[in-house]
Design a protein around this nucleic acid. Structure first.
Length: 348
DNA sequence: CAGAGATCCTGCAAGC
DNA sequence: TGCTTGCAGGATCTCT
């Protein structure tokens, strides 16, 4: 399922294949896919039609595309690049790859097209568990779970499709947060920056950990503290850090927290490096269930298999209506069970 | 108010 | 073979 690395691969695909294109038509084929757009499917389609996607940005697992008006002299068909996208994945993760306010990214424009003016609104997308944003030939057969189709005014011959089996994801249109240089939608203003973001605030993160009376895995999945981490990479990072998922956050020393943060980054970078390789054709290939990173997993899904570090059999624990995978030897359960009591005790 | 749990949804796998 | 049940999970809502 899509976590930060997968979403970043999608963002790069959108940047390449969708940015600068003018929307000719929007079809909403399943209302649940735009449930966060409260004004409904017709309004969503009407608001987008005739506008241009200005950029492709990401924060955590959210993607968004700011909308521009179309310049008066931009009626000629866009000569859109149609060539292999191989090499897109080679950018250094966290080095501008996250698309946060990169200077010129919004104003760079597409060759030969005069840019319109910003509308102050952005199309927000979330892939949920099974969502895919695909750039497909217009002639390609509809996917079984096609939810939204966006047709373009140019002659590139491709269209943007939102495909989502379990319908946890969706698209919506929102006003931009005032003062946000990258067109951040107001509804995700509370989402923290991700650990690959150059301006991720480590001190604020650690301060929040010390202040919270919760456990470390809950904190890792709390998108308002740190974004982009899902169940899989949380388990992977905790395994690498030899931390039990039920460890109270308040019991972590700063060096220990920074070590964990480093493992989160390492796991994400490794997944991002692998995820990019599947992205080399005409369409944005985001198969959330393709398992390209699966062979690299040390914890997630490895119940009853030997720990790659100590050989003990990995365990699976029910946790918040899902599962936590851990090594019972490397990742000892906390001695202090309650976060409340841990708060008054010394940091370990 | 912070934190914990329920909830949405669909397809697949396991069990009877 | 065919049905039922459980599981997967991110974000949001509700409850304590």
């Amino acid at each position: 399922m899509p976590e930060l690395p997968e979403v970043e691969v999608v963002r790069r695909g959108l940047e390449r294949w969708v940015t600068g294109r003018v929307i000719a038509e929007v079809q909403v084929l399943h209302p649940r896919a735009i449930r966060r757009h409260l004004a409904g499917p017709t309004d969503f389609a009407d608001q987008l039609t005739g506008h241009r996607f200005a950029a492709a940005c990401r924060r955590g697992k959210y993607l968004w595309l700011p909308l521009d008006t179309v310049g008066a002299d931009a009626t000629a068909p866009t000569e859109h690049p149609v060539q292999t996208a191989t090499g897109l994945a080679h950018g250094a993760p966290g080095d501008g790859a996250t698309g946060h306010g990169a200077p010129g990214s919004v104003d760079g424009g597409v060759d030969g097209v005069t840019r319109g003016e910003a509308t102050g609104r952005s199309v927000l997308g979330h892939l949920g568990m099974s969502g895919q944003l695909l750039v497909q030939p217009e002639t390609a057969a509809d996917e079984k779970h096609l939810r939204i189709r966006v047709r373009f005014a140019d002659a590139a011959g491709t269209e943007l499709r939102f495909v989502d089996q379990r319908t946890f994801g969706g698209l919506s249109l929102h006003d931009q947060l005032p003062g946000a240089p990258d067109g951040l939608p107001d509804v995700i203003g509370h989402i923290a920056r991700d650990p690959l973001d150059p301006v991720f605030d480590e001190t604020a993160f650690y301060t929040a950990l010390r202040r919270c009376r919760t456990t470390i895995k809950r904190a890792l999945l709390d998108q308002s503290l740190i974004s982009g981490v899902g169940n899989i990479y949380a388990d992977e990072a905790l395994w690498r850090a030899r931390l039990h998922f039920d460890r109270p956050t308040a019991s972590l020393t700063r060096p220990r927290a920074m070590e964990l943060l480093g493992h989160v980054r390492d796991v994400m970078r490794a997944a991002l490096a692998v995820g990019g390789t599947s992205f080399d054709s005409l369409y944005v290939n985001v198969n959330g269930e393709s398992g390209y990173f699966e062979c690299s997993l040390d914890a997630y899904g490895r119940e009853d298999e030997p720990c790659r570090r100590c050989g003990a059999l990995m365990r699976r624990s029910p946790w918040m209506n899902r599962s936590s995978y851990f090594c019972p030897r490397c990742q000892r359960p906390p001695r202090v069970v309650s976060p409340r009591t841990a708060r008054s005790g010394p940091a370990v």
